[in-house]
Amino acid sequence: MARKRIRIDLEDSDGAKYNFSLEGNVTREKMLKIFELMNLMNIEEPEGGGVPLDSIGAKIWNIIDKNFPMGKFTSSMILEKYEDEYEEPIKLSVISTYLSRFAVKGKVMREKQGKEWAYQILKIAQREKSGP
């Protein structure tokens, strides 16, 4: 199994910079601890979202974050929202590929529902499983 390496670079509203690096056996629980630490430090996204929408992956994530912060969604639902929002065509296979990558990266959880995959943002899925 390949060694995983994740690096997170952040800057807060006061201009302080934070660097997090995880190497080796990176688990979902370890990633959630990093997010909890960021929450304790009160690091938030900058005004306007902070992520430039200059790539397809960023645009797809923006659709997910904006339209499906809770609940499940499918690649077909993302396709519809993407084409409405950005007024440009995109293939369903491209969206499916990005959703699969997001699942591998631990950003979303996926499970088979009938003939297609259903996805859910991971931090919401974790709260539902562990209770309020």
Rank of each mutant, 00 (worst) to 15 (best):
E47K: 13
A125M: 09
K129F: 15
N42R: 11
V94L: 03
K91Y: 09
I63C: 02
N42W: 15
P46N: 08
I6N: 04
M31N: 05
M1I: 13
K115P: 08
M38G: 01
D84G: 05
K115Y: 09
A58I: 10
E88D: 07
E80W: 04
E85K: 00
K112H: 04
M1Y: 14
I56A: 06
I34R: 05
I64E: 01
E88Y: 03
Y98P: 06
K17M: 07
D9A: 11
S75F: 01
D84V: 02
R127L: 13
N39D: 15
M38D: 03
A16G: 11
I95P: 03
K115Q: 09
E85Y: 02
E36D: 14
L99R: 00
K17H: 12
F35N: 01
Q120K: 02
A2I: 13
M38L: 08
E36G: 08
S100G: 15
I34C: 10
K115G: 08
N39E: 15
G106T: 06
K81E: 03
I78R: 00
N19K: 03
L122A: 15
L37V: 05
Y119F: 13
M1G: 15
G106R: 00
E29G: 11
S21P: 06
D9G: 12
G15H: 05
T74W: 00
L37C: 09
W61L: 02
L53Q: 04
L10E: 04
G49A: 07
F68L: 02
F73A: 02
L40N: 10
A16E: 14
I78K: 00
I64R: 00
N25E: 14
F102A: 06
I64V: 14
A16I: 14
E116I: 10
L22G: 06
D12R: 00
F68M: 02
M70R: 14
S130C: 09
F20L: 10
V108C: 05
Y119N: 04
G114C: 09
Y18H: 08
A2T: 15
I78G: 00
Q126D: 15
L53I: 04
R5H: 14
G131N: 04
M109A: 13
I90L: 06
I60W: 05
F102N: 03
Y18W: 11
I43G: 01
P52A: 03
L53N: 01
I6H: 05
P52L: 07
K66S: 09
E83V: 03
D9Q: 12
T27L: 07
P89E: 00
K72M: 10
I121Y: 03
F73G: 01
I121H: 01
M1E: 14
G24E: 07
S21M: 11
A16H: 13
I6C: 10
V51N: 03
E36R: 11
M77V: 01
D84H: 01
K59I: 10
A103F: 12
K91N: 05
L37E: 10
